[in-house]
Nucleic acid binder design. Structure first.
Lengths: 167, 167
DNA sequence: AATTAACTCGATTAGTCCAGTAGGGTTTTA
DNA sequence: TAAAACCCTACTGGACTAATCGAGTTAATT
């Protein structure tokens, strides 16, 4: 999974909206100015987020954009999937599972790809906007203490013969 | 990090060379045929792998390609970095660390990116060709125990009436 | 020595994606 | 009704992807 410039812009804009949650709609221009993003490009991005029902717009004078849900209810994975596609490093999870079933020669390789996508998913599904804006709320799991690595050990162990293995 | 078609070809070719380790050089044509890869394209890929000193070539009649090291000494991360670049989902690890230091507004976001790249690195640095071809080999530090664990689904994944995306 | 198998490598190409711009159109508020 | 703001389609230059082509070099075999 690759996060594009556009994906980064989307996340930055969403972080800003999360910081101003419940303070009314914010104009594209203000988001663009404060986050230093190209205004017209941002417009496109917010439109996509609106169509995905993650944000909502208020038209007319005094209009702008705001989140449709609490920041703690918006996962980073949702935004990234929308803008940049599946989390897997190759194809998507569904496809990888199918290849693991069907392609005997390469299933171990695809299993590694799936492990990588699961590791990414584990992080991005559990991190919400609230977690990264110093936000409120339950639903958040990230602890604020400083440590180098937060994730559970992931040891890839491929047993020849397509044996199942631990997470 | 995104693995391209070219990256997949590289990994497949390397798996094949690993399976025939110590059996002499193998012709591009044979690799292409057995793995069903475009021959001329594969030629380019093997050239890159040769310049990176991961494989070596034998010229002339009876020539071909072979690994320069044991399969257990070749990590998937090495091949992927060569063909498809850094493992991080955005930029590279170095750059992310720098952004975490310098960009106060977004450091939490970049920290998540770095967590994702570390999770991927943890897997890909520890998985070698030997691990995925059922090879011989010690040399890799994965533990040989197998535990039966039924697939851990990451999260039920809540879709709020939004656009459907696979994965 | 000639032949031939095989790698080497620069050039080219069609298609797609990325990042961003342009410019009207529509809706709402004052 | 006029201004503010979002809505939406179209376009573009550049980079990247996935190849292909073809001439050149090297080495083994006859």
């Amino acid at each position: 999974m690759k996060i594009s410039q556009k994906g980064l812009y989307a996340l930055q804009a969403m972080m800003m909206l999360a910081r101003h949650y419940n303070q009314g709609a914010i104009r594209i221009r203000d988001i663009a100015y404060e986050e230093d993003l190209p205004e017209k490009f941002l417009e496109l991005i917010l439109l996509e987020l609106k169509n995905a029902r993650i944000v909502e717009s208020v038209r007319g004078a005094k209009g702008g954009y705001q989140l449709r849900r609490e920041p703690s209810e918006i996962r980073l994975s949702e935004i990234i999937r929308l803008i940049d596609g599946p989390l897997a490093p190759f194809g998507d999870a569904e496809q990888l599972r199918s290849l693991i079933d069907r392609d005997r020669e390469h299933r171990t390789l695809y299993q590694v790809f799936l492990d990588v996508r699961n590791a990414a998913a584990r992080i991005l599904e559990h991190t919400t906007l609230a977690d990264i804006v110093g936000g409120k709320g339950p639903g958040s799991k990230r602890d604020q203490t400083k440590k180098k690595t937060a994730e559970a050990p992931v040891l890839p162990m491929v047993v020849q013969g397509g044996r199942r293995r631990e997470e």
